[in-house]
Amino acid sequence: MIDFKDITIQLGAFSLQHVTLHIPTGAYAVLMGRTGCGKTTLLEAACGLRPLTAGRIRLMGRDVTNLPPGQRGVGLVPQDGALFTTMSVADHLGFALRVRKRPRKLIRDRVAELADWLGITYLLKRRPQGLSGGERQRVAIGRAMAAHPDILCLDEPFSALDEETHADMLDLLRRVHRETGVTVMHITHNRREARALANPLIVLRDGQVVERDLDSIGATPDPATDEVIEDNGDVN
């Protein structure tokens, strides 16, 4: 469960005022909205990467407003994966557990399990350099899921993928969601991605969140909804 209660975030000239949002446990929430509307800021607030000026954030019933990011039980997959270029794929998958000082054997087993689950066992010894876009995002998802987070935050994770890989990754995300029951908050500009995954679909518009019917967005750009959803790359 993700619960934003009347939160205000001030970021230089940009601000989000009095946003209230509720995503039930186990939901796959897709967040859409215009470039620069503050979607990423909301996601970062959930992760504890943006301080709030006002309001409370509760995750899985626990008030995390003042908790550091690492104690919130959140996994983050940013737009470009943001893999650690000096580490192997296996190091990525084991990172969260190493930081938590879990026993070596447990880390080894978890790395093997994750790699098998995500189909990246053949990459374990590789560095991120030279991995394909899809492979990178699999590693990023594995890294985020390693410590069994309650919540998975994805910020336009597949914006740089080709069509075929994109379809594979949608299947993978559905599987991750189904098999772990993790609550997901997924930002995208891609209508097809939203249609394939969203339950619920949330649109951020003029600083306010509105839950929308999936049928309100077509698979192709549509003037009626273009007002709300733009199909372009977000750099926030």
Binding site: L49, P78, D80, F95, V99, R143
Partner: peptide, 20 residues
């Protein structure tokens, strides 16, 4: 973002600095 990911994975700021 690498540092951001590292802190969500449980690093303190100094751990994110030293490890990542």
């Amino acid at each position: 973002r690498q540092e951001q990911v590292a802190v969500t994975l449980g690093c303190s700021r100094s751990q994110a600095f030293w490890l990542v």
